[in-house]
Nucleic acid binder design. Structure first.
Lengths: 201, 201
DNA sequence: GTCTATAGCTGGATAGAC
DNA sequence: GTCTATCCAGCTATAGAC
């Protein structure tokens, strides 16, 4: 990706929006971060709203296709979920503010995102198919009974929560954030282990 | 609690702040919600910042002591965690925007909250003690090995995540929010079951 | 205590020179 | 394309009448 002014702005906007949220972000802060002038933001992206949409879309694009990559193919349910866990933990560790950003902005329903997302995303996960596979393995006695939706929520919850709760958690439990980070290095392994135990009949 | 103007304002402020976040909340919106005038907000609470602090503090007070209630006493680890799950699921179901609010605002570190919180909270959970109990039960072979911090994160993740992710989840998976809500009725049972299977040696 | 009116500022957006 | 200067709406906060 060449470093044009346009891409510099976008990178700066990502940083600021994802950290502060739409309402908390300031165009001035984005301009400063990009090392250029406020007017340029409007020259390239017209408005705060439009700039935000680009940032948000790209943020989602970094998440949704990862699910598809993990869930498609022909591994077992546990193998697929293990892929989900590892892919997300790794991705979030490199973008720590990302999940909270996405969750917060969607809760504000600033976005009617699914329509635009599904059409634009190169890959989109096939949930009905995956859920079916879960049920089949359960009927075959390979994994314990649990509604597929709940299983997915359990996994995603264990993956995502620690990162968005880090500041609260460190404060309440009183451990330094550095210690927390080093604990998180094993995070994927711990989740996979926990999941396997929970699902083994 | 008598319905004075002061309490009316606070209730309105809770509603607006928790739904929109600090940056997204408008004093006018709070005034409207309370059915009174903007000037009154300042008369009673001086500034947006000060009003926010009261709201935030009370929000945290609704969460932290619940942990203590569940973790103190003399049940087993699993029994205590089951209490945590049931208490939080119930509480969040009645305050659906609460967790995202707390997580988002703390991530913005608008709050150096632990100091003021620990001194004001009537009950504050004793984590070292609980973690010790976990280790003891593990050494006694009663539950599987897992670092106490990770275990707690797993449980809280499974509890909190579904509620904060509801809008995303419903959009991506394409199920109506009403269906999701009815799924969530069993949520506590599902988590408890999953946890027990994961922890049983 | 409660209201109306308004001050004062912040921040998104634009005009216009270069 | 990039900058400076500026407009104007929207917001917090206050003054002042009742």
């Amino acid at each position: 990706m060449p470093e044009t002014t346009e891409t510099t702005i976008l990178a700066a906007a990502k940083k600021v929006f994802i950290k502060k949220g739409y309402a908390g972000a300031r165009m001035q802060a984005i301009a400063d971060e990009a090392g250029i002038n406020k007017a340029m933001l409007h020259y390239y992206y017209r408005s705060k709203e439009k700039l935000f949409r680009v940032v948000f879309e790209q943020a989602m694009m970094g998440l949704i296709p990862k699910l598809d990559e993990a869930l498609s193919g022909n591994g077992s349910v546990v193998e697929k979920l293990e892929k989900v866990v590892r892919a997300y933990v790794a991705h979030i560790q490199e973008n720590e503010h990302l999940p909270l950003f996405v969750l917060h902005e969607i809760a504000q329903n600033r976005i009617e995102f699914i329509a635009s997302m599904k059409s634009k995303a190169a890959r989109f996960p096939n949930f009905p198919q995956f859920f079916m596979q879960i049920i089949q393995e359960q009927e075959a006695g390979k994994i314990r009974a649990i509604l597929p939706v709940h299983l997915l929520l359990n996994i995603l919850g264990m993956v995502v929560f620690p990162f968005i709760a880090k500041p609260v958690f460190c404060n309440v439990i009183e451990i330094p954030e550095a210690d927390f980070d080093s604990l998180m290095k094993d995070r994927a392994d711990v989740i996979v282990d926990f999941m396997k135990n929970a699902l083994t009949p």
